[in-house]
Nucleic acid binder design. Sequence first.
DNA 1: GTCTATAGAAAGATAGAC
DNA 2: GTCTATCTTTCTATAGAC
Lengths: 186, 186
Amino acid sequence: MLETRPRNASATRATILKAARRAFAQHGYDGVNLRDIAARANCNVALVSRYFGGKEKLFREAVSEGFTLSDISGTERQDFGPNLAQYILSKRQRGALEPLQALLRSTSNASASALMQDILETQFVAPLAEWIGGENAKLRAATIAAIIIGMATARDILETPSLTSPTIAQVTDTLAPLLQSLIEPC
Amino acid sequence: MLETRPRNASATRATILKAARRAFAQHGYDGVNLRDIAARANCNVALVSRYFGGKEKLFREAVSEGFTLSDISGTERQDFGPNLAQYILSKRQRGALEPLQALLRSTSNASASALMQDILETQFVAPLAEWIGGENAKLRAATIAAIIIGMATARDILETPSLTSPTIAQVTDTLAPLLQSLIEPC
DNA sequence: GTCTATAGAAAGATAGAC
DNA sequence: GTCTATCTTTCTATAGAC
């Protein structure tokens, strides 16, 4: 007979959440079903709905600990562009970008889009605009967000060869000055 | 009794295609079903599969006449940034961006992502890189593509307030120098 | 050329057994 | 705490009538 999981609700819950985050990042909200997630977590489908209250609530929780600016805003102003570019492009940080990827792959879903708009504005644009200061700070911050979104989409989602085949250093050298120019006064 | 459509296959086909393009742009591949499209085209569901051979083939046809560079590559080099920024942001051209939006909202679908990667590389990056010339032309062209993708996602898909509330002129002034810098020699 | 009717598959959710 | 079994809905696709 098939064995059942050891009886540990919180561990099972954490395993499901981790599996869900990865699955949503790879296939988006509409591209994933609960049976896939359960299989990845090596547990039964019923547990997913049981612990998270449904697919939508699971998604919200999976993307909520997202990409934040805390790692970057402590840097010197002159290093902003290079540091942010490095952060986005580095494969080592890839786990940290899973929530962003999950949201970017879920734009066919209205709820997910609304959630992303909220996260983007409150967790990224607003604090970055505060840090930038001066004229048009929000517009500049949102433009930086757009560049990050575009890079993540083209490189990590679509895997455009022109962006995946160069070295990280080459892409960084192209990207960093763009980001840097957006935080400097005109 | 309900009336049936006038018997005109090519007109019906064209109506369905137009309705599909708009529906896919608004909700993405996975967010649209054939009944919605048929309802928009004011025809029967069965006709959609009948004329296009299924949902996937309909999608391919709806996004194939996409965003091309032909409108922009004839411009003077010094006007590239402003012209491209204007083109992307102008609401008048919005119909022309429907295929791009449809693809961006369909990244949860593997086939649609592969299709977009192909379209992006062959219809945008390659010809633009040719036009740019010189060192790192492909990387620069792909970076321009990424910026456009990010702007389209943040502004048109997510409707980020920080990008939708400023005037088009303000956004253009922020975006144009970035695009321009990517076609100039370092 | 267009429509009705339906087959067949897939997915979210939940009741109840163990 | 976990699993089996099933209900219900939704969707694509197609056969066949008009």
